[in-house]
């Protein structure tokens, strides 16, 4: 879907991108991660030509991005940024529909599309006439996503979109975004410096440093990265623990049991990390109820699971 070949970019003296090669497949979510100044944002912005690269080639839909008219290219690619950048003088509906209006869509088509997007992002339809300043941070972020998706682009670029939200809201919006992505299968390039966010959302993570991609792999594989000192430093020594958040107890194939002592407040939808947290407080196994089935969970289950994904 998106191919980058030996892409370089220099700002004055500083090299932002130093020969990037990257293939992004259709329908996958690539998360670019790394410390500030590693070039992740520059890489993202070069795809929709918000910045022009110095050398190399970027192809989108098997065509060099230079061959498109720049407005046309950008309309094929959704773009979300931190701070959302909603237009404060326009209502929610006008914000979402601004490009549709430029493209001269019919009024009823616009209404239908806006309603579709709002219900997909679980925003009340009554919000269409609200102004951006009347929205909470999370709501504004969802409207930003709606606006990026308005023309139904198959590629979505997201530049730390949830960076300004408080932790609780951020988690909610992340999960909501994951749900949407499951339905829509957009090709997503996502920039963040939050490792947990990367683990949660990524199909593949690209770890960047000083304008280069150090490592590109699925989140599971980063568990064995301790040989590369820089990588493990940035991802954190507790990477395995963070990785647990990506999986739910349903992924563990737990045994159903009849007898149990007491139940804890978990379900198959809870993350493995939550499950482990309960395990830490119990001497042996813990039990929980999901839909009138009782499951047993122990350290061993988690250990075995980790071994499995490690060798997958």
């Amino acid at each position: 879907m998106i191919q980058l070949r030996n892409v370089t970019k220099k700002y004055d003296k500083q090299e932002a991108l130093r020969g990037i090669d990257l293939n992004i497949n259709e329908g996958e979510c690539i998360v670019l991660i790394g410390p500030s100044g590693c070039g992740k944002s520059s890489l993202l912005k070069s795809i929709n030509r918000m910045i022009d690269i110095d050398s190399g080639e970027i192809r989108v839909f098997n065509q060099s991005i230079e061959s498109y008219r720049v407005e046309e290219l950008r309309r094929k690619i959704g773009y979300c940024i931190q701070g959302v950048g909603l237009f404060p003088h326009l209502s929610v509906k006008e914000n979402i529909a601004i490009v549709l209006r430029v493209l001269k869509w019919k009024e009823e088509d616009i209404d239908q599309r806006v309603n579709e997007l709002l219900s997909m992002t679980e925003l009340p339809l009554s919000y269409i006439n609200k102004r951006p300043h009347e929205l909470s941070g999370g709501e504004a972020q969802r409207v930003g996503v709606c606006r990026a998706l308005a023309t139904n682009p198959s590629i979505l670029l997201m530049d730390e979109p949830f960076g300004a939200l408080d932790p609780l809201t951020r988690e909610k919006v992340q999960l909501a975004f994951k749900e949407i992505q499951k339905k829509l299968h957009k090709t997503v390039v996502f920039v963040t410096h939050d490792v947990e966010e990367a683990i949660l959302l990524a199909d593949r993570i690209a770890l960047m440093q000083e304008g280069k991609i150090l490592h590109l792999d699925t989140p599971n594989k980063f568990m064995n990265l301790d040989k590369n000192e820089y990588g493990s430093d940035f991802l954190g020594k507790d990477y395995s623990l963070r990785l647990l958040k990506r999986f739910t107890l349903a992924d563990l194939n737990l045994k159903e049991v009849r007898s149990f002592n007491s139940l804890v407040n978990l379900s198959l939808g809870s993350s493995v990390k939550d499950g482990l947290s309960y395990c830490l407080n119990a001497e042996q196994s813990i039990y929980f109820n999901d839909n009138n089935h009782i499951y047993e969970l122990s350290y061993n289950d988690i250990y075995n699971f980790m071994q499995r994904i490690n060798h997958e």
């Binding site: 918000m50 407005e71 290219l73 940024i81 931190q82 909603l86 237009f87 606006r147």
Partner: peptide
């Protein structure tokens, strides 16, 4: 950010 997103929207 407003100008950026305006350009990015095409």
């Amino acid at each position: 950010s407003i100008m950026d997103s305006a350009y990015a929207l095409g």
